[in-house]
Design a protein around this nucleic acid. Structure first.
Lengths: 205, 205
DNA sequence: TTTTTTATTGAACATTGTTCATTATTGTGC
DNA sequence: GCACAATAATGAACAATGTTCAATAAAAAA
């Protein structure tokens, strides 16, 4: 068979992505395949390759969308007046935690997918990640200001990255199922609070 | 063809594991396959399934070995007399960091591999992970003792898990290549120091 | 209406994990 | 030593994967 006009190029683009995301969410990242997507939208597998360069390309696009979701949620956070920097940081961490819990598989895709050797992530992808750090850096800078601690912009950048990576690690361990949790006292939410309370207190000291 | 006596059962076991590890280390986790292993040791692919239940089974065994290596390195750490708890924690984190750097792909396998739904990790695997926490908990308990901070055993368990997960997250972000590092000031080693210094100071306060 | 362009297909290829009847070799009982 | 039984290794087979590409049918242009 051949050319149809059921969908515009853009519609197909979107159709493939949303279908892929549905599969990832409902059946797991490992269940994603070109044939499964195409079968579900009523096209052949080859069509996927008409729209995306490769499966890797599609996955990177999906991952970029995950970053967009988190960024928009952080952006729509009620403004920080009257909130301590510590509370601001906790609010941001909560958004991250929430995303991990409600989109476990998509988050797994985001951080475990790797491009084959030689290929590298598109620029706008890394830009999105960098953007995620900005609000955290700001909160830490205002922490320095508040507590008359000497801390440069460089220190704030380092602290922001450290804190973010740590939150990420807590989510990872929590979700991987590889750490025996013993009790609910050691779930991700409690660990993140423990981390931020101590880390912030430590930065002050 | 058929039965040979080139290797005992145990030798074959070991031969398969060491070959698989070589492939992971040299060619990446993604390059690991039953046919590649078997081809390299001069057996057919089916033989792998004579010795291991599945590829997953083999990978879990390899991952358990990674845990063993880290555990033995932590165990052989010079004893903690005259060292502050903070230094002890840094020494342990350094071991972890070192493993990640020298066995990047094996570490990636350890934390990204997942069993198919329904299957769960063997008990001795989770036991090994729990064992890794013990020295960290001890260091944190002695931190409490040293600085007359009130801290229960439960608090120490939570703090130990939190700190360990955080170090893990820093390594993950560092090696995933997804975080644009901007400068070498934000490499894993600096971030871990930043984390432990602040976290420990915070626990004291 | 004819021609050109182009979107879609389906067959094909290489590679994956996994199973299993077949077979050659080893160990056992006489 | 010989027949027999136990078993380890095989290689073909199956389903599924990503990916490519000539063939083709429909839409757009002439």
């Amino acid at each position: 068979m051949a050319r149809r006009s059921d969908h515009t190029r853009n519609e197909l683009h979107e159709l493939i992505i949303t279908t892929a995301i549905r599969i990832i969410d409902d059946e797991g990242f490992a269940a994603l395949s070109a044939r499964k997507i195409s079968g579900e939208i009523g096209y052949s597998a080859g069509t996927i390759y008409n729209v995306y360069k490769s499966m890797d390309d599609l996955i990177v696009t999906i991952n970029a969308r995950s970053l967009d979701i988190m960024a928009s949620q952080i952006k729509s956070l009620p403004h920080s007046v009257g909130q301590t920097p510590c509370d601001q940081l906790k609010a941001m961490a909560k958004i991250y935690l929430n995303f991990v819990h409600s989109h476990k598989e998509r988050w797994f895709a985001l951080f475990t997918h790797r491009l084959p050797a030689g290929h590298s992530l598109p620029d706008d992808f890394t830009t999105k990640i960098t953007a995620l750090f900005a609000p955290i850096e700001r909160a830490i800078l205002s922490l320095y200001a508040e507590s008359s601690t000497t801390g440069s912009s460089k220190d704030a950048k380092l602290a922001a990255r450290t804190l973010w990576a740590s939150v990420h690690g807590i989510c990872f361990i929590d979700q991987s199922g590889k750490m025996p949790l013993v009790s609910t006292q050691y779930d991700a939410s409690n660990m993140v609070n423990c981390l931020i309370d101590s880390f912030v207190a430590g930065l002050r000291a």
